[in-house]
Nucleic acid binder design. Sequence first.
DNA 1: CTAGGGTTAG
Length: 542
Amino acid sequence: MPAAMEASLSLSQQSTPQGSSSFFVSLLQQCKSAADCRHLHHQYLLHSLHATPFVSNHLVQTYGIFASIEDTFCVFATMPRRNIFSWTSMVVAYARHGLGVCSINKMLTLGKHIHTYIHLNGFDCNAYVGTALIDMYGTCGCVEMARAAFDAIRAKDVVSWTAILTVYAQHDEGATALELYIKMKNDGVLANDVTYCSVLNACANLADLEVGRRIHADTCTLGFWSSSLVNNAILNITALVTTYAYAYHGHAKHVVRLFAKMKQEGVKPDEVTFTSLLSACSHAGLIDEASRNFRSLKEDQGVARTMEHYACMVDLHGRVGQLGEAEELIREMPFPPNHVIWEIFLGACRMHKDMEHGQFAAEQVLQLAPDKSAPYVLLSNLYASEGKWEEELKIRKLMIERGVQKQVGCSSIEVDGVLHHFMVRDRSHLRTEEIYAELERLNLEMKAEGYVPETNQVLHDVEEELKEQLLFYHSEKLALAFGLVSTPRGTPLHVVKNLRICSDCHTAAKYISKIRGREIIMRDYNRFHRFKDGLCSCGDYW
DNA sequence: CTAGGGTTAG
């Protein structure tokens, strides 16, 4: 490619400057790697194309996609003149790099820096620049800053509204997202399919099927009934709510039926539709249904298999312990597996105690996503559950060396409109004495019913009795105990945890729901669990 | 001539 570019570019030297700049842009659009970018950058300087602002802007955009954020910034900073387009493209580059190429903290630091300049130049009131900033902060998990960027926009259009709605929906603030949707309508801004996609996603996160139905009705009235974006969001909401919050296998079959109905009505399913379907099947254990669809995807349904489809299938086999089949799928994938695939496989190895494969999978994850704390935690868990303390220590040291921070678990529960937060072994709550006394009582009652603490879940190399204690002061259990002592008998308890729910806490919640006759709804990092009469809606399958 | 928002796998 570079050689071809060079040849074609030297030909264009003869033509007018106008002609060579549009030709250069068409070459930029064929760029496929950082090396291509640098090569074209060289040509750009050689042909003095920096004199044409729109060419420089294209170069920044292309660098933003393929090259490092430092290199992109360098191009941006050496432009003779920067306009609104340049600033927008630079912020988009920051947002994109926040998505895993760089560490989020680094992005946030650099992003805030550029935000200051944007503000000083008064560009933050522009809808394009502002919306890019919303997206950047959202990607970095900074909801307040995203909101500030939104507020600064003078003429907020449908894209700005959708961007901020999405940030709230993706950060467990579905209620705020829905409020903003109403506000947007009151402001006279017309929602489009992308907006509805986000609004429906907010409903899914809230597990609010009722509001979801109402909004679905709105979309039909407005003529979005055939939009695959909106339809996929609706299928997703149904899949999420029915499989995770309300029921067992029968309801996942409802998703399968809904899917069939969709096809009957002439709505063509796309890759995303199938990802939702396969995922619902996987979580409900509908192996045959999933496998049949996966196998016939290309031939019968005309949809190319994606990374996500493979992820669902690896998960499906992995969770039932068919590690060989899962591995086979990874091997036959037509593209290199990403870190998510290996994380799923690693989770399955951990669940089924396959150290050898687990270690290999963990190494792949560490290589592909060195900034993520999850693989380190999973690997150290794996070693810990096998009692390999030296190996476990090595992983933890590596984590410190690389500056990877483990996210601290935190559970919240709402009582009388007030949100109470708990960390592990937290004693900061005003009613700590009562909470710990309740935990003691629960411990005895649960053991009488047959509860055995899963001490192999505890990370540290400590004595059995101490392990049991460490488990018992998990944030989930503290939040539950507080809920029990502070609400009237029979009140359902709603707990939200920022990470995946711990397996021992999951077991404990089942016992507690039975012993105390309470319904417990726990919202985990990406799932709902509904505990009732000693059982969980996930069927211990999550 | 160039710029901003979306669903899905964990």
